[in-house]
Design a protein around this nucleic acid. Structure first.
Lengths: 345, 345
DNA sequence: CTGAAAGCGCTAACAC
DNA sequence: GTGTTAGCGCTTTCAG
């Protein structure tokens, strides 16, 4: 490998051009006009910079300007398509606003989330987008009250003063159940996500509302599960389908939940959609290429990310928190093949 | 929002403790022993720091130490599970080595990739992991020769002096074809990825080798496609299946390709695996929850990421490039349900 | 039109 | 044991 020649500095450029560092700085930062630097000098400086392959040190710049141009992202699992899609939107939106994104994976641990946020603060990120692991928000509130523009995405909290962006879970669940009912389903099993998280709670509320409208009793026996994972979906679907064989439909609160349900159903000899309907929240690209394409309540994931990034950068630029704290993004029911009419008995 | 109170600085802490900045710095950096700072002073400093909520500025530190502790990651599409899985491993491995990861999405554009790498260099990342878009490596070579420890993942280049980590594509493709042949398939369609990329070329070579071993002629007519996308898979599968209806198996070079093939097959009335076998490269979590679980050549994606991160950080710490440039990580054939015996005619 | 000097927050060599 | 000083690379008053 070639010798790691240190990048040349501004004063190198200045020296090469035979001017002072200040002049060089001004010429390179497009302030020639303002300072009425002679055309000749300006060109000379620019050429020297070019020739030396000068790249200004962002570190020095950050220190001087007290602006890092860094935006932090913390997600619970970057290998989960839902979160990586959010991360993607945030990074590109940040990039468009002139920021670089620094990312970290909390691996589903509140403790790690806390540490990572500490680290990011130490790095002087100018704002932070976090998809919280979901239960404890104290450290987030703390960071925000320290003046760090922070926005949470997805797993929000109802009674929080944080800026939050999440889907319209209630309406989504309501529509899901409505669709099932329209198709004649009366006995509907619910595969629940992590208790205590807003998405899970709101979706459950949506379920109850839709059931109430249709005059169907909400049966606690028909809801199971406590995590958005595939394993949880599998176990609870198995349990529900075994204990209540008269179920004709399943509402899964996440795609992994739905995958689990799929497996359980096939093990128990139920065919989707022939004698079991399945609808789920979240819509990942793959879902449509399953042999039985899933009918889903699609969250507008890119929009979640984009909005979060925008709220974060705005907040940072204006220096004040937006009036609206809770930002709901609409969901969309996508009908594919996994919901069928209840078979006439 | 509360007033954005600037974080307190080292000299604030020093003042509060009634000592000089140097002493404070030493006490806080665990150098008390080395400098024989009195127990009392040390505690005093630490308490003051605690009380003021002092968090050392990484920016100032970076400038002084000429070390940012930053590792850059550039991927073509963070919403693609393959790349996000790599990104995840890189960020966590980096974290374990005490680095923060700064990430960017090149959105499949070489131009953008070039710009992003520039930006990262300006931010003084200490090393860089890039999943190149695949064709032009000049800017990567340039960055590396400037002394930046850089490692490329996945789409590598055969005759490059860069440090690269990629799967054993040749063996993988060889095994895929072998499996098909063992199952009686003789007419095998190939759904190809982006031409000119090492993964695609090596896999094609593997195909030819396996075919040769079995004494089957390589038929140029049976290979189609020019991208790892789902659309490409769909179009080329349709084309192949239409022009050569005697095909009994398809080898797809990516999961998206396979999804496309799935759709094409079902539109053309072919059933997998009954009268069409399908095997594909890459193994994403979903693949096993498809109603017909896909038989795949699984890349060890986490390992790709981990190795890359390690090579990057090692290189940076030792200051020299590793002897081995090309790092191949083994693949694994995972048999599921999408490959069947060729039906006796 | 340009330069000198100060300083962002930190650490380390060199005093004493 | 602890303080003083210099300086990382940059921008920006303030002078001229």
């Amino acid at each position: 490998m070639k010798k790691a020649r240190a990048n040349s500095t501004l004063s190198d450029v200045a020296k090469a051009a035979g001017v002072s560092a200040s002049t060089a700085s001004r010429a390179l930062n497009g302030l020639a006009q303002k300072y009425r630097i002679s055309e000749a000098t300006e060109q000379l400086v620019k050429q020297s910079a070019e020739r030396l392959g000068f790249r200004p040190s962002q570190v020095a710049r950050s220190l001087r300007l007290q602006r890092t141009g860094l935006l932090g992202i913390v997600v619970p699992d970057l290998s989960n398509p839902f979160f990586s899609a959010i991360a993607r939107e945030v990074t590109v939106a940040a990039g468009e606003e002139g920021f670089s994104a620094i990312i970290a994976d909390s691996d589903g641990s509140v403790e790690k989330e806390r540490e990572l946020i500490e680290q990011m603060e130490a790095r002087n990120v100018e704002s932070l987008v976090v998809c919280p692991i979901g239960l404890d928000f104290a450290h987030l509130e703390a960071a925000a009250s320290r003046g760090l523009p922070l926005v949470t995405v997805d797993r929000c909290q109802a009674n929080s003063s944080l800026v939050q962006v999440t889907s319209d879970h209630l309406t989504g669940a309501h529509q899901a159940i409505e669709l099932l009912i329209e198709n004649g389903h009366q006995r509907i099993g619910i595969l629940q996500g992590l208790h205590g998280t807003l998405p899970s709670e709101r979706r459950l509320k949506g379920v109850r509302e839709a059931l109430a409208v249709a005059g169907i009793d909400y049966d606690q026996k028909l809801v199971a599960g406590d995590s958005f994972t595939q394993e949880s979906g599998y176990c609870s679907a198995r349990q529900l389908l075994t204990e209540s064989p008269d179920l004709t439909a399943l509402f899964a609160m996440s795609t992994p939940n739905a995958f689990g349900a799929f497996r359980a159903a096939s093990e128990l000899g139920r065919k989707i959609p022939e004698n079991l309907s399945l609808i789920c929240f979240d819509d990942v690209a793959f879902v449509e290429f399953m042999q039985v394409p899933l009918t889903t309540i699609a969250q507008n994931v890119p929009e979640l990310g984009r909005r979060a990034a925008l709220l974060a950068t705005e907040q940072m630029q204006s220096g004040k928190s937006p009036r609206t704290k809770m930002h709901k993004v609409p969901i969309k029911l996508i009908q594919r093949a996994s919901v069928g009419k209840v078979p006439p008995l």
